[in-house]
Amino acid sequence: MEEQKIGSLRFKIDFSQPLYEQILDQVRSAIAKGEIELGAKMPSVRELALELRVNPNTVMRAYQELERDGLTEKRRGQGTYVTSSAERVQLFRTELASKYMDSFLEQMASLGISLSEIQGYLSKKYPNETGGTR
């Protein structure tokens, strides 16, 4: 599995996993991390499908989902653009982060791991950051 660069987007597609989710997740995180700038033009469905060697329908479905997220917008006759609203991206980022966090905490809970254990692990993992209360 090798990394492919399309414009300012990077992809790592694993054909043993569902493709739609991989494309969606990887574009989402590129936007959230700011790898692709606000208001920048997205590669066309065709371009992405050609580069990734996947069915254009799959790319199209991922793009539709991104639009529903509010991360991209379609401009008639011009293609798809990343939203120019920083708040929108920020909002999405927090939403996604809390979603990940929730599922993380849920998994930890299912393993019976307490909050202090998690905190201990975190401070070991990030020794230079000031954790806990501010």
Binding site: V45, R46, A49, L50, R53, N55, P56, N57
Partner: peptide, 10 residues
């Protein structure tokens, strides 16, 4: 051929 097909499919 694969490119042609992807191009066609859109």
């Amino acid at each position: 051929i694969i490119s042609g097909m992807i191009d066609y499919l859109e």
